[in-house]
Protein backbone atom coordinates (compact mmCIF):
# COMPACT_ATOMS: atom_id res chain seq x y z
CA UNK A 1 0.00 0.00 0.00
CA UNK A 2 2.74 2.43 0.95
CA UNK A 3 4.54 1.37 -2.15
CA UNK A 4 1.65 2.16 -4.40
CA UNK A 5 0.95 5.50 -2.76
CA UNK A 6 4.59 6.37 -3.08
CA UNK A 7 4.72 5.48 -6.77
CA UNK A 8 1.48 7.38 -7.28
CA UNK A 9 2.90 10.54 -5.77
CA UNK A 10 6.21 10.10 -7.50
CA UNK A 11 4.71 9.70 -10.92
CA UNK A 12 2.30 12.61 -10.53
CA UNK A 13 5.15 14.88 -9.56
CA UNK A 14 7.23 13.42 -12.35
CA UNK A 15 4.66 14.10 -15.04
CA UNK A 16 3.71 17.54 -13.86
CA UNK A 17 7.28 18.55 -13.08
CA UNK A 18 9.02 17.10 -16.10
CA UNK A 19 6.46 18.07 -18.74
CA UNK A 20 8.16 21.40 -19.53
CA UNK A 21 11.43 19.52 -19.79
CA UNK A 22 9.99 17.32 -22.53
CA UNK A 23 8.86 20.40 -24.43
CA UNK A 24 12.30 21.93 -23.91
CA UNK A 25 13.93 18.76 -25.22
CA UNK A 26 11.74 18.72 -28.33
CA UNK A 27 12.49 22.38 -29.00
CA UNK A 28 16.20 21.83 -28.44
CA UNK A 29 16.27 18.86 -30.80
CA UNK A 30 14.45 20.86 -33.43
CA UNK A 31 16.91 23.71 -33.04
CA UNK A 32 19.81 21.29 -33.52
CA UNK A 33 18.18 19.77 -36.56
CA UNK A 34 17.75 23.22 -38.03
CA UNK A 35 21.39 24.16 -37.35
CA UNK A 36 20.52 26.53 -34.55
CA UNK A 37 22.05 26.49 -31.11
CA UNK A 38 18.73 26.54 -29.24
CA UNK A 39 17.78 28.03 -25.92
CA UNK A 40 18.54 24.98 -23.83
CA UNK A 41 16.24 22.33 -22.46
CA UNK A 42 15.39 24.39 -19.39
CA UNK A 43 13.99 27.30 -21.33
CA UNK A 44 10.29 26.40 -20.74
CA UNK A 45 10.89 26.61 -16.97
CA UNK A 46 12.37 30.06 -17.33
CA UNK A 47 9.43 31.16 -19.40
CA UNK A 48 6.96 29.78 -16.87
CA UNK A 49 8.76 31.46 -14.01
CA UNK A 50 8.75 34.77 -15.84
CA UNK A 51 5.08 34.51 -16.67
CA UNK A 52 4.10 33.65 -13.11
CA UNK A 53 5.86 36.74 -11.86
CA UNK A 54 4.07 39.11 -14.18
CA UNK A 55 0.88 41.00 -13.42
CA UNK A 56 -2.11 39.52 -15.17
CA UNK A 57 -3.89 41.77 -17.65
CA UNK A 58 -7.47 40.82 -18.22
CA UNK A 59 -9.47 42.00 -21.21
CA UNK A 60 -12.27 44.38 -20.29
CA UNK A 61 -15.14 42.10 -21.14
CA UNK A 62 -13.67 38.90 -19.69
CA UNK A 63 -16.05 36.95 -17.46
CA UNK A 64 -15.14 34.70 -14.51
CA UNK A 65 -15.21 31.75 -16.91
CA UNK A 66 -12.17 33.21 -18.62
CA UNK A 67 -10.23 33.18 -15.36
CA UNK A 68 -11.46 29.76 -14.35
CA UNK A 69 -10.53 28.01 -17.60
CA UNK A 70 -6.72 27.87 -17.13
CA UNK A 71 -7.13 26.25 -13.73
CA UNK A 72 -9.57 23.69 -15.13
CA UNK A 73 -7.19 22.85 -17.96
CA UNK A 74 -4.28 22.48 -15.62
CA UNK A 75 -6.32 20.42 -13.16
CA UNK A 76 -7.59 18.04 -15.85
CA UNK A 77 -4.14 17.46 -17.26
CA UNK A 78 -2.61 16.88 -13.84
CA UNK A 79 -5.40 14.41 -13.06
CA UNK A 80 -4.70 12.47 -16.24
CA UNK A 81 -1.08 12.33 -15.15
CA UNK A 82 -2.05 10.58 -11.93
CA UNK A 83 -4.08 7.91 -13.73
CA UNK A 84 -1.81 6.73 -16.53
CA UNK A 85 0.60 4.02 -15.38
CA UNK A 86 4.02 5.48 -16.03
CA UNK A 87 6.33 3.80 -13.57
CA UNK A 88 4.15 1.08 -12.13
CA UNK A 89 0.78 -0.44 -12.81
CA UNK A 90 -0.12 -0.72 -9.16
CA UNK A 91 -1.64 2.72 -8.66
CA UNK A 92 -4.44 3.45 -6.21
CA UNK A 93 -5.90 6.07 -8.55
CA UNK A 94 -5.70 4.10 -11.78
CA UNK A 95 -9.13 2.51 -11.42
CA UNK A 96 -10.72 5.96 -11.56
CA UNK A 97 -10.59 5.97 -15.32
CA UNK A 98 -9.97 3.75 -18.26
CA UNK A 99 -8.49 5.06 -21.44
CA UNK A 100 -11.86 6.27 -22.77
CA UNK A 101 -12.55 8.24 -19.64
CA UNK A 102 -9.12 9.82 -20.04
CA UNK A 103 -10.12 11.00 -23.49
CA UNK A 104 -13.23 12.46 -21.86
CA UNK A 105 -11.02 14.36 -19.44
CA UNK A 106 -8.96 15.76 -22.31
CA UNK A 107 -12.20 16.81 -23.96
CA UNK A 108 -13.36 18.57 -20.81
CA UNK A 109 -10.17 20.63 -20.76
CA UNK A 110 -10.63 21.42 -24.43
CA UNK A 111 -14.23 22.53 -23.94
CA UNK A 112 -13.13 25.04 -21.34
CA UNK A 113 -10.29 26.24 -23.53
CA UNK A 114 -12.64 26.80 -26.45
CA UNK A 115 -15.27 28.53 -24.34
CA UNK A 116 -12.67 30.79 -22.75
CA UNK A 117 -11.37 31.66 -26.20
CA UNK A 118 -14.84 32.85 -27.19
CA UNK A 119 -15.33 34.75 -23.97
CA UNK A 120 -13.55 37.99 -24.81
CA UNK A 121 -15.29 38.16 -28.13
CA UNK A 122 -12.42 38.76 -30.54
CA UNK A 123 -12.31 37.50 -34.09
CA UNK A 124 -9.23 35.34 -33.63
CA UNK A 125 -10.41 33.80 -30.39
CA UNK A 126 -13.61 32.43 -31.82
CA UNK A 127 -11.83 31.30 -34.97
CA UNK A 128 -9.36 29.35 -32.87
CA UNK A 129 -12.12 27.81 -30.81
CA UNK A 130 -13.97 26.67 -33.89
CA UNK A 131 -10.91 25.13 -35.47
CA UNK A 132 -9.81 23.43 -32.27
CA UNK A 133 -13.21 21.83 -31.86
CA UNK A 134 -13.23 20.79 -35.50
CA UNK A 135 -9.88 19.04 -35.30
CA UNK A 136 -10.95 17.38 -32.07
CA UNK A 137 -14.20 16.08 -33.59
CA UNK A 138 -12.35 14.45 -36.41
CA UNK A 139 -9.59 13.12 -34.18
CA UNK A 140 -11.83 11.41 -31.66
CA UNK A 141 -13.27 8.65 -33.90
CA UNK A 142 -9.73 7.79 -34.99
CA UNK A 143 -8.58 7.77 -31.38
CA UNK A 144 -11.35 5.37 -30.41
CA UNK A 145 -10.46 3.00 -33.21
CA UNK A 146 -6.85 3.14 -32.04
CA UNK A 147 -7.95 2.04 -28.60
CA UNK A 148 -9.96 -0.84 -30.02
CA UNK A 149 -6.91 -2.85 -31.02
CA UNK A 150 -4.96 -2.95 -27.74
CA UNK A 151 -8.17 -3.39 -25.83
CA UNK A 152 -9.06 -6.35 -28.03
CA UNK A 153 -5.71 -7.93 -27.30
CA UNK A 154 -5.92 -7.28 -23.58
CA UNK A 155 -9.71 -7.67 -23.33
CA UNK A 156 -9.74 -4.43 -21.39
CA UNK A 157 -9.66 -0.69 -21.78
CA UNK A 158 -8.01 -0.15 -18.45
CA UNK A 159 -4.42 0.95 -18.94
CA UNK A 160 -2.82 -1.13 -16.14
CA UNK A 161 -4.41 -4.29 -17.55
CA UNK A 162 -3.24 -3.46 -21.06
CA UNK A 163 0.28 -2.85 -19.84
CA UNK A 164 0.32 -6.08 -17.87
CA UNK A 165 -1.00 -8.09 -20.82
CA UNK A 166 1.30 -6.65 -23.45
CA UNK A 167 4.48 -6.47 -21.43
CA UNK A 168 4.07 -9.79 -19.74
CA UNK A 169 3.63 -12.15 -22.63
CA UNK A 170 6.33 -13.63 -24.74
CA UNK A 171 7.30 -11.35 -27.54
CA UNK A 172 4.69 -11.40 -30.30
CA UNK A 173 4.72 -9.29 -33.41
CA UNK A 174 1.38 -7.61 -33.76
CA UNK A 175 1.00 -5.91 -37.15
CA UNK A 176 -2.31 -4.58 -35.87
CA UNK A 177 -0.55 -2.81 -33.01
CA UNK A 178 1.93 -1.28 -35.43
CA UNK A 179 -0.94 0.19 -37.42
CA UNK A 180 -2.65 1.40 -34.30
CA UNK A 181 0.59 2.96 -33.09
CA UNK A 182 1.08 4.96 -36.27
CA UNK A 183 -2.53 6.10 -36.13
CA UNK A 184 -2.12 7.05 -32.50
CA UNK A 185 0.96 9.07 -33.35
CA UNK A 186 -0.92 10.96 -36.03
CA UNK A 187 -3.86 11.64 -33.76
CA UNK A 188 -1.65 12.86 -30.97
CA UNK A 189 0.06 15.26 -33.35
CA UNK A 190 -3.35 16.73 -34.14
CA UNK A 191 -4.52 16.77 -30.54
CA UNK A 192 -1.37 18.42 -29.28
CA UNK A 193 -1.45 21.17 -31.88
CA UNK A 194 1.79 20.07 -33.53
CA UNK A 195 2.89 20.23 -37.14
CA UNK A 196 1.38 19.27 -39.61
CA UNK A 197 -2.04 20.20 -38.20
CA UNK A 198 -1.04 23.22 -36.19
CA UNK A 199 2.22 25.01 -35.59
CA UNK A 200 3.05 25.74 -31.95
CA UNK A 201 5.57 28.40 -32.85
CA UNK A 202 3.63 30.23 -35.52
CA UNK A 203 3.20 33.97 -35.57
CA UNK A 204 0.66 34.11 -38.37
CA UNK A 205 -2.73 34.69 -36.83
CA UNK A 206 -4.66 33.22 -39.71
CA UNK A 207 -2.96 29.84 -39.53
CA UNK A 208 -3.20 29.49 -35.78
CA UNK A 209 -5.39 27.02 -34.01
CA UNK A 210 -4.29 26.54 -30.44
CA UNK A 211 -2.35 29.77 -30.24
CA UNK A 212 -5.32 31.75 -31.50
CA UNK A 213 -7.36 30.53 -28.56
CA UNK A 214 -4.94 31.84 -25.96
CA UNK A 215 -4.13 35.23 -27.49
CA UNK A 216 -5.89 37.13 -24.73
CA UNK A 217 -4.21 35.34 -21.86
CA UNK A 218 -1.28 36.75 -19.96
CA UNK A 219 0.90 36.12 -16.93
CA UNK A 220 -0.11 33.31 -14.57
CA UNK A 221 -3.11 32.29 -16.66
CA UNK A 222 -0.94 31.95 -19.74
CA UNK A 223 1.67 30.12 -17.71
CA UNK A 224 -0.90 27.62 -16.50
CA UNK A 225 -2.17 27.04 -20.03
CA UNK A 226 1.33 26.58 -21.42
CA UNK A 227 2.17 24.23 -18.61
CA UNK A 228 -1.10 22.34 -19.14
CA UNK A 229 -0.35 21.86 -22.82
CA UNK A 230 3.12 20.62 -21.92
CA UNK A 231 1.53 18.11 -19.53
CA UNK A 232 -0.89 17.16 -22.29
CA UNK A 233 2.00 16.32 -24.59
CA UNK A 234 3.57 14.35 -21.78
CA UNK A 235 0.31 12.55 -21.11
CA UNK A 236 -0.16 11.56 -24.71
CA UNK A 237 3.43 10.32 -24.77
CA UNK A 238 2.98 8.16 -21.71
CA UNK A 239 -0.38 6.83 -22.92
CA UNK A 240 1.32 5.89 -26.17
CA UNK A 241 4.14 4.27 -24.23
CA UNK A 242 1.81 2.25 -22.07
CA UNK A 243 -0.26 1.11 -25.05
CA UNK A 244 2.50 0.29 -27.49
CA UNK A 245 5.86 0.17 -25.68
CA UNK A 246 5.01 -1.02 -22.21
CA UNK A 247 8.26 -2.80 -21.47
CA UNK A 248 9.93 -1.70 -18.28
CA UNK A 249 6.88 -0.56 -16.33
CA UNK A 250 6.88 -2.12 -12.88
CA UNK A 251 4.06 -4.58 -12.35
CA UNK A 252 4.53 -5.80 -8.81
CA UNK A 253 5.75 -4.29 -5.59
CA UNK A 254 9.44 -3.75 -5.82
CA UNK A 255 11.40 -0.70 -4.73
CA UNK A 256 14.42 -1.71 -6.72
CA UNK A 257 12.58 -1.85 -10.01
CA UNK A 258 11.53 1.76 -9.88
CA UNK A 259 14.92 3.14 -10.96
CA UNK A 260 14.84 0.71 -13.88
CA UNK A 261 11.38 1.90 -14.81
CA UNK A 262 12.55 5.48 -14.55
CA UNK A 263 15.48 4.81 -16.82
CA UNK A 264 13.26 3.07 -19.35
CA UNK A 265 10.80 5.95 -19.26
CA UNK A 266 13.53 8.52 -19.82
CA UNK A 267 14.98 6.58 -22.71
CA UNK A 268 11.58 6.27 -24.39
CA UNK A 269 10.72 9.92 -23.86
CA UNK A 270 14.09 11.10 -25.17
CA UNK A 271 13.71 8.99 -28.29
CA UNK A 272 10.09 10.00 -28.76
CA UNK A 273 10.84 13.69 -28.35
CA UNK A 274 13.68 13.51 -30.83
CA UNK A 275 11.43 11.71 -33.30
CA UNK A 276 8.79 14.39 -32.88
CA UNK A 277 11.34 17.12 -33.54
CA UNK A 278 12.55 15.29 -36.63
CA UNK A 279 9.05 14.96 -37.98
CA UNK A 280 8.31 18.61 -37.33
CA UNK A 281 11.47 19.61 -39.14
CA UNK A 282 10.72 17.47 -42.14
CA UNK A 283 7.08 18.38 -42.71
CA UNK A 284 5.16 21.56 -43.28
CA UNK A 285 1.86 22.67 -41.85
CA UNK A 286 -1.20 21.68 -43.82
CA UNK A 287 -4.13 23.85 -44.74
CA UNK A 288 -6.91 23.49 -42.22
CA UNK A 289 -9.19 21.70 -44.67
CA UNK A 290 -6.50 19.12 -45.32
CA UNK A 291 -6.75 18.14 -41.66
CA UNK A 292 -9.80 15.92 -42.33
CA UNK A 293 -7.71 13.94 -44.82
CA UNK A 294 -4.85 13.62 -42.38
CA UNK A 295 -7.11 12.42 -39.61
CA UNK A 296 -9.04 10.29 -42.06
CA UNK A 297 -5.79 8.50 -42.82
CA UNK A 298 -5.25 7.95 -39.12
CA UNK A 299 -8.77 6.57 -38.88
CA UNK A 300 -8.14 4.26 -41.81
CA UNK A 301 -4.96 2.94 -40.28
CA UNK A 302 -6.67 2.33 -36.97
CA UNK A 303 -9.56 0.49 -38.62
CA UNK A 304 -7.16 -1.62 -40.66
CA UNK A 305 -5.29 -2.43 -37.48
CA UNK A 306 -8.48 -3.58 -35.82
CA UNK A 307 -9.57 -5.64 -38.83
CA UNK A 308 -6.17 -7.27 -39.11
CA UNK A 309 -6.37 -8.08 -35.44
CA UNK A 310 -9.74 -9.73 -35.98
CA UNK A 311 -8.80 -11.61 -39.14
CA UNK A 312 -5.14 -12.48 -38.80
CA UNK A 313 -4.18 -12.81 -35.19
CA UNK A 314 -6.63 -15.26 -33.79
Amino acid sequence: MIHSIFTQLLQTLLIVGLAPLLVGWVNQCRAWLQNKSGAGVLQPYRVLHKLFNKDAVLADGASPLFRLAPYVQFGCMALVGTIVPVLATDLPFAAAADVIALVGLFALARLFAALAAMDVGTAFGSMGARREMLVACLAEPALLMVFFTPSLIAQSTSLPTIVETLAHREFVLYPSLAFAAIAFYMVSLAENARIPVDNPTTHLELTMIHEAMILEYSARHLALIEWASAIKLMNYSVIGISLFLPWGIVEAEGWLLIPVALAALFAKLLAGGAALALLETLSAKMRIFRAPEFLGTAFLLAVLGMLIRLALEK
Binding site: F52, N53, D55, A56, V57, L58, A59, D60, G61, Y71, V72, F74, G75, C76, A78, L79, T82, F93, A96, L108, V120, G121, T122, A123, F124, G125, E205, L215, E216, R220, L224
Partner: peptide
Amino acid sequence: GVLAALGATFALVRKLYHGRMRRGPAWDC
Protein backbone atom coordinates in the same frame (compact mmCIF):
# COMPACT_ATOMS: atom_id res chain seq x y z
CA GLY B 1 -9.64 15.17 -8.33
CA VAL B 2 -10.32 18.07 -10.66
CA LEU B 3 -11.59 20.23 -7.82
CA ALA B 4 -8.60 19.35 -5.62
CA ALA B 5 -6.12 20.00 -8.43
CA LEU B 6 -7.92 23.25 -9.20
CA GLY B 7 -7.89 24.42 -5.60
CA ALA B 8 -4.31 23.38 -5.00
CA THR B 9 -3.12 25.14 -8.13
CA PHE B 10 -5.01 28.26 -7.23
CA ALA B 11 -3.63 28.32 -3.70
CA LEU B 12 -0.08 27.50 -4.79
CA VAL B 13 0.02 30.15 -7.48
CA ARG B 14 -1.23 32.74 -4.99
CA LYS B 15 1.19 31.64 -2.33
CA LEU B 16 4.34 31.24 -4.41
CA TYR B 17 3.72 34.20 -6.65
CA HIS B 18 0.91 36.72 -6.35
CA GLY B 19 -2.66 37.39 -7.44
CA ARG B 20 -2.20 40.82 -8.99
CA MET B 21 -4.45 41.64 -11.88
CA ARG B 22 -5.59 44.61 -13.87
CA ARG B 23 -8.05 45.19 -16.68
CA GLY B 24 -7.28 46.49 -20.12
CA PRO B 25 -8.73 46.46 -23.61
CA ALA B 26 -8.62 43.15 -25.46
CA TRP B 27 -5.40 42.65 -27.38
CA ASP B 28 -6.52 40.64 -30.42
CA CYS B 29 -3.06 40.66 -32.00
